[in-house]
Simulated scan of single mutants.
Amino acid sequence: MGQKVKTGYQMGMRRFGRVNWLGLAALADREIKRFLVVWTQTLAAPLVTAGLFLAVFTLAIGPQRGEVLGVPFTAFLAPGILMMTVIQNSFANTSSSIVISKVQGNIVDTLMPPLSAMELLLGYLAGGIVRGLMVGAVIAAALWALLGQGVAHPLWLFLFLTLGAAFLGALGVAAGILSNKFDQIAAITNFIVVPLSFLSGTFYSIATLPPALETASRLNPVFYLIDGARFGMIGASDASPWLGLAVVFGATAAISALCWRWLQTGYRLKP
């Protein structure tokens, strides 16, 4: 009679421990299926975009450009375009998911289930990371088939691609929380994400920059993602991959902690 009624979350904690594995898996599954349903936009389109970037820069600059970091310009360019495409798609997946829910008015369907802030964050990140890695796998396969581009250090490449997808996925969660409409997400993409991607050594070695710009580039976490992917693919880089790993891991942890706090308090999510 006097026994308290247990919530679904409390019962879930007793059955599965302190993590609602079933709810987390359901959210991750939803986020992955979101982009798989429209695979022509989320997987095929990035491949075309990456191919166009590679073709334009190779045709316009390649014949006049010598080796960069000891490899042909096309081989130097390929990993940068690969990483740039991966992180942009990871950001788009998490940010669009939250903003679409806000615009359609069904964000409450995500907030009401017995999911903690960490479980919500991991569920959203799962979709962004899986989409980023799938895009990366498609582009890497195309580079190997069309250009014969191999991978010097597969584990390093996979590690940096995963961290890159996680970092921009978390940044996408933050952008989705802050934004209430698509115009705001577009502004963040155009004025933050794209400049960070383009001004990070994607199309050039930062060793060719003036000292001030080179120093500024080394303060950009995306530079270490591009550089790490380049090390993984061609075995050469402008910075130590261990330094890049530390910087990117720290940046990912910092933005993830911020997202966790906002999800925990319902900042700009709860009416």
Rank of each mutant, 00 (worst) to 15 (best):
N220I: 02
L120Q: 08
K270N: 13
P211H: 09
M11W: 12
I234D: 11
L52T: 14
G136T: 06
I100D: 14
V173K: 08
T110K: 03
F167L: 15
S237G: 10
A75N: 03
G70C: 13
K33W: 10
S96Q: 13
A92S: 14
L125Y: 05
W21A: 10
L43W: 07
N180I: 15
G266A: 10
V48P: 07
L27E: 08
I255Q: 08
E214K: 15
A60V: 10
I100Y: 11
A141P: 07
T94A: 12
N93L: 03
W21L: 14
I226A: 00
M118S: 14
V173R: 07
T85I: 01
Q3M: 13
L52F: 13
A166W: 08
Q184D: 10
R14S: 12
I100M: 14
S256N: 06
L52M: 13
W144M: 07
V56G: 06
L146E: 02
L146T: 09
R30E: 12
A141N: 08
R34A: 13
G228D: 07
F203I: 06
G235V: 00
A212H: 08
F57Y: 14
G164Q: 06
V194H: 00
W156R: 01
W262H: 03
T252P: 06
G169V: 04
Q184S: 11
W262N: 03
F73H: 02
I32F: 13
A186C: 04
V71N: 01
Y204H: 08
L147D: 09
